[in-house]
Computed example of a mutant assay.
Amino acid sequence: MSGHRSIRDTEKAVQDKLGDTPVRHEPMAAVANIYRAAAAVRQHLENSVLRTADLTWTSFVVLWVVWIWGERETRRVAEQAGISKGTLTGVARTLQSRGLLERNSHPTDGRLALLSLTPEGERLMARLFPQFNAEEAFVTDGLADDEALALADLLRRVVMQVETHGEERRLELLDGKDPRPRRSGRRAKG
Rank of each mutant, 00 (worst) to 15 (best):
153 D>Q: 10
73 E>N: 06
145 D>L: 12
119 P>A: 07
119 P>E: 09
55 L>S: 06
35 Y>V: 14
53 A>F: 00
118 T>Q: 04
142 G>H: 11
133 N>P: 03
136 E>S: 13
118 T>L: 00
171 L>T: 12
125 M>I: 07
152 A>G: 07
148 A>P: 03
135 E>H: 11
56 T>V: 02
124 L>I: 03
101 L>H: 00
150 A>H: 12
122 E>M: 09
168 E>P: 09
124 L>G: 01
55 L>N: 01
94 T>I: 04
164 T>F: 08
115 L>I: 03
119 P>S: 09
107 P>V: 01
41 V>R: 10
46 E>H: 05
56 T>R: 06
81 A>S: 04
95 L>M: 10
42 R>H: 05
128 L>T: 00
132 F>S: 04
66 V>K: 12
40 A>K: 13
163 E>A: 15
136 E>F: 15
73 E>R: 10
106 H>A: 01
140 T>H: 03
115 L>A: 05
95 L>H: 03
161 Q>N: 15
73 E>C: 05
81 A>C: 02
141 D>H: 12
44 H>M: 07
88 L>D: 05
37 A>C: 11
173 L>S: 08
52 T>C: 12
129 F>R: 10
46 E>I: 03
81 A>E: 02
144 A>M: 12
51 R>Y: 10
156 R>S: 14
122 E>P: 04
93 R>C: 03
116 S>T: 10
69 W>Y: 15
40 A>C: 08
119 P>M: 06
128 L>W: 04
42 R>Q: 11
71 E>K: 09
123 R>H: 06
85 K>L: 15
114 L>Q: 07
159 V>G: 11
130 P>R: 08
130 P>M: 00
109 D>C: 07
144 A>I: 08
96 Q>W: 01
46 E>D: 02
61 V>L: 11
153 D>M: 07
147 E>V: 00
109 D>M: 01
108 T>R: 10
40 A>N: 09
94 T>H: 11
130 P>C: 02
166 G>L: 00
147 E>I: 05
115 L>P: 05
42 R>K: 12
58 T>W: 07
88 L>Q: 03
155 L>W: 10
93 R>F: 09
102 E>R: 14
84 S>P: 01
144 A>Y: 14
44 H>K: 09
132 F>A: 06
86 G>H: 14
79 E>H: 06
46 E>R: 05
159 V>K: 10
